[in-house]
Amino acid sequence: MRAHYRAEGLAERDLAPDPYQQFARWFEQAADSGLHEPNAMVVSTADAEGRPSSRTVLLKQYDERGFVFFTNYGSRKGRDLEANPYASLLFPWHGIARQVIVSGPAERTGRDETAAYFRTRPHGSQLGAWASEQSSPVASREELDATYARLADRYPEGEDVPAPPQWGGFRVRAEAVEFWQGRENRLHDRLRYVLTDGKWTVERLCP
């Protein structure tokens, strides 16, 4: 199976001064294109022994400080980032023949920031954060549903649900950001911002 790309290219002169501004441009275009969940990204981590793992997570915030997602700190990615605080984020925008890859150190968001975001989540998602010990084995679906039901009785709709202490955000502070644009004949454009001594430089990579 092979797709033939015929998209317009990406030239150095077209780039924004820094990767966060460039990401904002492409993210807006991805959203306007009708892509389903353009904020879905593959988060890759590695444990203390260097064994990698990946999963799809939703980007919830981004600015010049980094890219933020939320999770259970006891999950596999949470444990990985505790032992080895670096991550890679991949935005696979196949429908518009684009990808963005972010890599850099990851750190927990503050509890105030976590609580503020948690309050914006739907009530059911708030309960789900309490019900699921993410990445841990569970005996059955029935056990998970029963835990959720008990929480729903404790915190009925309309009642404030506190953010679980084991749940919160990670911010990935970019050290390198690659913008990939598919081109015909597999001669894709790959332009990568690299942070060196506090300044961004751009390099072109062979496809």
Rank of each mutant, 00 (worst) to 15 (best):
T114F: 11
R154F: 01
V161Q: 10
T147P: 07
S135A: 10
E133Q: 14
Y155D: 09
F91S: 04
V102A: 08
T147D: 08
D160W: 02
S125W: 04
E82L: 05
Y148S: 01
F91T: 01
H123Q: 04
N72I: 05
S132F: 06
P162F: 05
A131I: 05
Y73F: 10
V68F: 03
G74M: 08
D153S: 01
G158F: 07
D112L: 12
L90S: 07
S135N: 02
E133P: 08
P165A: 14
A146L: 10
A97T: 13
R171Y: 09
F170A: 05
L89E: 09
E82Q: 06
V161G: 13
A83V: 02
E159S: 14
T120V: 14
S103Q: 15
E159D: 13
F67P: 13
F118T: 05
G110D: 15
F118P: 10
A163V: 13
R186Q: 04
I101S: 14
L81V: 06
P164Y: 04
P85Y: 03
F70T: 01
E82D: 01
E143R: 09
A115R: 13
S140A: 09
L151R: 03
D63H: 05
V138H: 08
A115N: 07
G124K: 01
P137V: 09
P122Y: 05
A129P: 13
